[in-house]
Amino acid sequence: MENTPETIVKISSLVKRYGDLLAIDHLDLQINKGEVFGLLGPNGSGKTTTINCLLSLLSFDKGSIEIFGKEMTPTSYDIKRKIGLIMQNVAVFDELTVYENIDYFCGLYVSDKAQRKALVEEAIKFVGLDEFTKFYPKKLSGGLLRRLNIACGIAHKPELIILDEPTVAVDPQSRNKILEGIQQLNREGATVIYTSHYMEEVEQICSRIAILDKGKKIAEGSCGELKQLIKNTETVNIELPSLPQNVHSALASLPHVYEVRYDDELLTVRCSGGRHNLIRILDVLQKNDISFGRVYSELPTLNDVFLEITGKELRDKE
């Protein structure tokens, strides 16, 4: 199939092996212009390997990768100039100031000094490091360091930005700022590939998501589409001091309930479809004269999607 003009990244039947270990198993991905595409998966699922193959930092065994309609190779410098990379680790020089660091990484793409100066200043403003330009990285907090890391990756105004778990070990306030920044970059026209194992982040910013497990794509779609893939529609949690067996059975026999668990004085009831599930559950408890504490109901998250999908996958293999 030929690439449409909107397709920025096309990965076809990508296979990467580390000896006997199959790190990426026939992966197909298509990322379109203007998308914030999330690569979601647990540690070791193949997210970073996929990114490394995409950037030609790693060779692969089979398949093909096209970026901006051209085959990506280690010497595709014209393609690389349009890509910005923000890695999981803060990859900056401790010996250079904030300004010098951004200028250095921007200089790897932009040789014109005047143009670079403007870009560096813009990047500094974008990440809000105006007051820290003369600071050395060691003097910055974890959140500010992450922002510096981002500024180094985006200063040259790339068309495709790849963020590999940029919020690892970041406080919630800084995390929100980073996520807002990514959304702003996307609004300004950049296509974003975002890898993370934080489901809520991916859910918050990604327009399309691929879930990886053991190097295989197990699901792909928008957040809503992914949630429709699973049978869980509601999870009811109730704090109980004890749960007699007859009550457990009564709950399990309720319509739409497909799983009842009681661990550590917490009753978890998973429901698939239906309405008024919470009322029916509380009614059973009341009829059996069971007193209870806190009650809360949750709608499915990507976490549920992932758990359910990977669980099935694993069971199928076994």
Partner: peptide, 10 residues
């Protein structure tokens, strides 16, 4: 990490 950034650049 620094070299990877350079390798991904132009």
């Amino acid at each position: 990490d620094i070299r990877s950034r350079a390798q991904c650049s132009g």
